[in-house]
Design a protein around this nucleic acid. Structure first.
Lengths: 247, 247
DNA sequence: CCAAAAGTGTTCTCCATACACCCATGC
DNA sequence: GCATGGGTGTATGGAGAACACTTTTGG
């Protein structure tokens, strides 16, 4: 007997053993949607897939799907992301639960929305597969027409992301494990949509002990090589979860 | 025929008309829980009800219950709050969706958690009814044993509230429509769990144009009467949603 | 030697903080 | 007149903002 079948039987038995006063089932579906960000070409980008069936046939959508019966939501989000894009993310956070009664025209489906960050190097390694899903990056500030309430979801995720990078080190998840300070600054500039002063930025980052030198250099093209840094966990712990980088 | 019955029939018909490719039903329940805060006796308090049945029989819980099939989550939260406590809140915000597979021992039930604020005067007007629910206020920092994951939910709500009052005017919902500056300060002190300097506090509030004088005085007991203020929406709009009060 | 990005200090202003005394009232 | 909270101003230090030039490399 296959393990999957055993599991299914265990689930069925567990359901049968449900206590008699279990609350009645409501026919409300539960989905997760994932807004996946990266930075490409100095632009904040969102991953979208093609919808190939009704409703919203032909539009784009963020990766999403129904949650399984005994599956935690974060697991569902990761499973769906991997299935539709081939990507594993190391950072994923719950955004909001979207609940408009008619957000899915077929029937009531809640969407527990998540947002996630990947470094652009993850893209080369695993590559977004040109599968049936047609996963592709789109500039977050120039999106095509989207299915369901996904435009609002992305809007909310961008707002949240702006706040997030100012008081947590989330921005580092948009970079390789080693990076130059200019790259880090560009992440902040792209997300905040404003230019930052190079000297002030570097002073802040370094005085907070958020980074440490690797001793390596990145040499690229015909210009001065840049020092490579890595993120220091302890820097953030010490900061006590307070404001890190407010510009 | 009663309207309720007509509605039920309409719902049934709508379901019947559901498109053939509607996603399959998952047996996942959807509940809302509401963490309702007020300030009483210079203490942050949470409203709890008694559980009178399994699971967690005899423990306290925050007000909560299952969402109806065609009901928006915020409406469900308000409906449940009114049913179990008799209170209407004017401020209610989604907190987080709690999803541990075994958070309800009977079967899989998601909880979309909300938090809400009421001014203490609402309590006198509508009074928390000593109904079967046994709704009562408890100091948020000295809670009894709680059902489900409600202790974690309250923890999360308190953390969120601390942040919230620093960059939005949410704190005003814990006060009457007119209030003294000392009352406002006490709200901040109680939530942040730290004393604030009276002169600095007043300077901040007034320089942000968050309040305006009503011209009224509150005379109370054997001491100097205090000026009454009201909240000014425009103050917050002008502040552009940025940081309001950081102490 | 030229182009392109890396790297580096100082000044000024403003805002957060710290701090102590008089005021108005009811009894 | 006294107890109680209401109400007010100033001085200091530190952090954010503004600002421009030199360095290193490959071609």
């Amino acid at each position: 007997m296959k393990d999957a079948m055993k599991d299914a039987m265990k689930d069925a038995m567990k359901d049968a053993m449900t206590s008699p006063d279990a609350p009645p089932l409501q026919p409300i579906g539960v989905a997760v949607d994932v807004i996946l960000f990266t930075i490409l070409d100095d632009t904040l980008q969102v991953l979208l897939v093609d919808r190939l069936s009704q409703p919203f046939d032909g539009l784009r959508a963020v990766p999403g799907g129904l949650v399984e019966r005994r599956e935690e939501l974060a697991c569902a989000a990761r499973r769906i992301l991997r299935a539709q894009t081939g990507l594993d993310v190391d950072w994923l956070e719950q955004l909001y639960t979207f609940d408009a009664v008619d957000r899915d025209p077929r029937r009531r489906v809640l969407s527990v929305s998540w947002y996630a960050l990947v470094a652009p190097n993850a893209l080369e390694d695993e590559a977004v597969p040109e599968s049936a899903w047609g996963a592709a990056w789109h500039p977050a500030r120039a999106l095509p027409a989207l299915a369901f309430d996904h435009a609002r979801q992305i809007e909310a995720a961008m707002t949240r992301l702006r706040y997030k990078i100012e008081y947590t080190p989330a921005a580092f998840h948009l970079l390789d494990s080693t990076f130059t300070l200019s790259e880090l600054q560009r992440v902040y500039e792209v997300i905040l949509a404003q230019e930052l002063d190079k000297r002030n930025f570097r002073r802040r980052v370094q005085s907070l002990d958020l980074v440490e030198e690797t001793g390596q250099l990145r040499r690229e093209g015909t210009r001065r090589p840049a020092r490579l840094y890595r993120f220091r966990d302890e820097g953030f712990e010490r900061a006590g979860g307070g404001v890190l980088l407010r510009f």
